[in-house]
Design a protein around this nucleic acid. Sequence first.
DNA 1: CATCCCACA
Length: 710
Amino acid sequence: MENLPIRQFEDKIVETVDKNPVAVIIGETGSGKSTQLSQILRKRGYTKSGAIAVTQPRRVAAVSVARRVAQELGVQLGEEVGYAIRFEDRTSEKTCIKYLTDGVLLRESLSDPELNQYSVIILDEAHERSLNTDILLGLMKRLVKLRASNLKVLITSATLDGEKVSRFFSNCPILNVPGKLFPVEILHSSERPKNYIDASLKAAVDIHVKEPEGDVLIFMTGQDDIEKLVMKLEERIQSLEEGSCMDAIVLPLHGSLPPELQANSTFILFLQVRVFSRPPPNCRRLIVATNIAETSLTVDGVVYVIDSGYVKQRQYNPSTGMYSLDVVQISKVQANQRAGRAGRTRAGKCYRLYPSIVYHDDFLDATIPEIQRSSLAGSVLYLKSLDLPDIDILSFDLLDPPSSESLQDALKQLYLIDAIDEDGSITSLGRTMAELPLEPSLSRTLLEANECGCLSQALTVAAMLSAETTLISGRSKISEKKRKHIPSNLPDGSGWGDHIQLLQIYEQWHQTDYNVDWCKDNNLQVRGMMFVKDVRKQLAQIMQKSAKESLDVRTRKGRRESQQDYKNLRKALCAGYASQLAERMIRHNGYRTIGFKSQLVQVHPSSVLRTDEEGMLPNYVVYHELIATTRPFMRNVCAVEMPWVMPITRKLEKLNVEKLSGGFSEPEKSVRVENSDLRKENSSLPKLPDDHDSKIQAARERFLARKGIK
DNA sequence: CATCCCACA
């Protein structure tokens, strides 16, 4: 550990920290900043007046770095050195170096806004610009003024534009610490390929045939492209002449692979190499990965990187409330991060499938931060609940402020679910909601469910939705076919929709005493279901804490839910999803969204929502998410009743965004949207005439009058 | 009838 580059800068670092409340430390991969900085400051006495907090964007990083530091200091993990991540707090009163995810630090500052237990706060990996890190940066700016005498803040990152952060913190000093990366030779293509899968294939085979040993890492945009390239690579390598080159194995690497296949890829390697009956040193790995290999996973032994220059990115459009998943060009920071993956073990090469002029002229300097690509309802509610007397929430000082459009969207959502009043002040309901680690819509659902007497069911639904992506097992081609042959035994939501189905699934699992094999039989990821169980327990505890009387949060066993239970639950969901409502077209099963700029949308084909005897879907639904793929879809849909919708539409009519944002929205003050070109307008959708809404409403009333309103 | 990049409380 003494030979890590950062150790030579020890005196300089300590001197800078002594003299300044904030400092930026730029340290490349291998500089040792994550493990050494905390130890250096501890040695120099900074833990006498409080603990040192080091935040990480990811759980695994927080755990592994803490483990490493405990080992280096020769102490038991959880004593002097510990970590805190969701569901797991391994710290004690003795802990003076604490690694935590930035989400956990945000939660801590909810109960102690001044974070008085810490003498030093280090925000690590700030260049990744996660939503939570950005909010922490804003909070730190305020905190260093408030606690000028007894708090030190360090912002550390790899390739971050240090000048920008320094300017944000009134020109604080920047220290550069060299990394331990080996040189990487960058090779650009002369032009952009027409087909980047084929170009990657050619580049990979060229390397394999011509270059000395060393693994190859290929960056693709998604699972589909990865599977295609893996197949083509295997074909080509099979056809290579025997003995003309070393053996190779091709490995896919993406998020929806079961974790046991991901984390321990050497294990698969071992199995496959045995099948090849060749000794490992003479075998090259070709790893075809998404951007998971950019930061989250490091693969040792990579010497060659092939970079397509693209990435799949999720963005939120605040005017329509719709998410889209787009393939976009990477930024310069990302391109360099990818190249750096070739220089971890020895000098490497990076093949960029684009000309250097594209890199210089077309690529953005840095990736658009998450805070400018997401819905901000949760973050705005969080900041409002902090009650910072000296801070106006809408001009809250952030490194890259979101657009005023995005802030107004957040306020509108919060108003519709009663988290803030018409002046934009947080309500007592809103305060309770902010305590829950959920999206505001689901927090609101829980509170309403508590009133409706269906809290237990709502807890289950909220927990299931929190784990949604990790629930279903990887969709391999084989299991896809199997699923069509064997009809699923899972419940169908009784026709009411996907939320009810999620409830029924969990209840069935509960009936089996949380049986692991039951999950496997039903193609549900065991880890995902265990996560749901943990989340549910945590939510129940928080609800119980904020309630005066004792709440019934138990999952009922051996008792089937009645239609009345479902009705209560649907009613609670309607209150929570007040800003995520849609109304069916009169003649067909398409919907239009209410509240946002009206969008024509459809129920996602994977939904279990059923039609009535006339083949029609419910008049009104709430949805968990709008996502534009091939078309705009509502995902996770639940039927609601018109009487529940009426108060919401009345509230929408009263809505005054100016008032909500406290006069913030004068046009000259609004922040320019830098990434507007990335947002897809749904120009393919027909334009609605101005009087469309009233026409629809009149027609609907006539229609319902004929049918007889229930 | 359609498939989603990566994280986090």
